[in-house]
């Protein structure tokens, strides 16, 4: 792992614009908006194209690291030949993701656990991850659905960021977190001042206000201890409204389950992986017809326990960053925060 490197400097508006312009010169820069290379990811070709979202963007950067559909290889059935070449992955040019919120950056750290650290590396994820630098923006205006603090993230969390930028009223504090982040900053050749006490105070106030605005439907204490009981009766109650769609999993920045299938046209075909969801009945259906998770109760329990219990034992981390996308999009407003609160209260 990289040696931690923390350095802070101040940018005024024109410095930041210059910084963006210089970054664009040397790298491929993407921000969370539009859909240039994948949904929710826009290439920033000019500094005026950079835009920030209030709170987390519509899509997380999961789409970039783990595209919804990805070709694992192509094949020819007649000759039994496999073609695994992949031009996109062979391109090692640095990619800079800028403008994602701390929650979405932390989600990348969690995906690293699955695709890089647990067993063999996933070549697709690894290649993209290694060529990527992350510049996150601390959150000054969380949404009503945000609950990052309750799950151990926060408006100024730096997990997996190479650089965190705090956008103040008329200036920016740039904090490099890793050596890569520092190199990125140095390479722009910007001559920047340190941060005055006054500006540090402004930042503190911004983060505090941001914290105050965060909903605290449940607290991190609610998650401590053995909060979820597989056998409990509340699961039946909780899943009652659930429609069984895949929105919560597809919009979750840490959900990463996938299916693998072959697609064929004539003798040529490809093996692809595509996002899958534990909320779908087919997810665990055996060829024999047996299904260990036959109803919504088991499937919802799996989703929640995987995030908050199983992942703790697998990776020592909870697989939720509090971005609130599942809360925003649930068609029946089945709010994960309330579910956790109910569970914590043992209802």
């Amino acid at each position: 792992m990289e040696r931690p490197m923390s350095k802070e400097c101040l940018m005024y508006k024109e410095d930041f614009e210059e910084f963006l312009a210089r970054l664009i010169e040397g790298h491929s820069i993407f921000c969370p908006s539009g859909e240039d290379i994948s949904p929710g990811i826009k290439k920033v070709a000019g500094r005026e194209q950079f835009a920030l979202h209030r709170g987390p963007s519509h899509f997380s950067f999961k789409h970039y690291f783990l595209p919804q559909t990805e070709r694992l290889f192509s094949f020819d059935m007649a000759s039994n030949k496999i073609d695994a070449s992949n031009g996109e992955l062979d391109d090692n040019k640095l990619v800079v993701l800028i403008g994602l919120r701390p929650c979405d950056a932390m989600a990348i750290e969690l995906l690293d656990q699955v695709f890089l650290q647990r067993g063999p590396e996933d070549v697709f994820y690894a290649r993209r991850r290694r060529r990527t630098r992350i510049i996150s923006f601390a959150c000054s205006e969380p949404r009503t659905t945000c609950f990052c603090e309750s799950v151990g993230c926060g408006p100024d969390a730096a997990a997996s960021a190479d650089m965190v930028i705090f956008a103040l009223k008329d200036s920016y504090i740039v904090k490099t977190i890793t050596q890569c982040g520092e190199e990125l900053l140095n390479n722009t050749g910007m001559n920047l001042d340190g941060v005055s006490t006054e500006k540090l105070g402004e930042r503190e106030q911004m983060i505090n206000e941001s914290r105050d605005r965060l909903e605290k439907v449940f607290t991190s204490e609610d998650l401590n201890g053995k909060i979820m009981d597989f056998e409990a009766s509340y699961w039946k109650q909780i899943c009652q409204k659930c429609l069984g769609c895949g929105i919560c999993t597809y919009f979750c920045p840490t959900c990463h389950c996938f299916d693998i299938v072959d697609e064929v046209a004539g003798s040529k075909g490809r093996r692809i992986r595509s996002w899958d969801s534990c909320m779908y009945p087919l997810f665990t259906l055996h060829a024999s017809g047996h299904n260990p998770r036959p109803t919504r109760k088991e499937r919802m329990r799996q989703r929640i326990m995987h995030k908050f219990v199983y992942s703790m034992e697998q990776y020592g981390r909870r697989f939720c960053v509090g971005c609130g996308r599942c809360v925003i999009h649930c068609p029946v407003n089945l709010d994960l925060r309330l579910v956790i609160k109910e569970i914590a209260e043992g209802k």
Partner: peptide, 24 residues
């Protein structure tokens, strides 16, 4: 044990029993 499996390497996420992946 048997489970529906895809990747075999603990990534695709479907073969878990609690925190154990049957494939790994």
């Amino acid at each position: 044990l048997e489970m529906r499996m895809k990747c075999g390497i603990g990534m695709c996420g479907r073969c878990n029993i609690g925190h154990k992946y049957v494939c790994v």
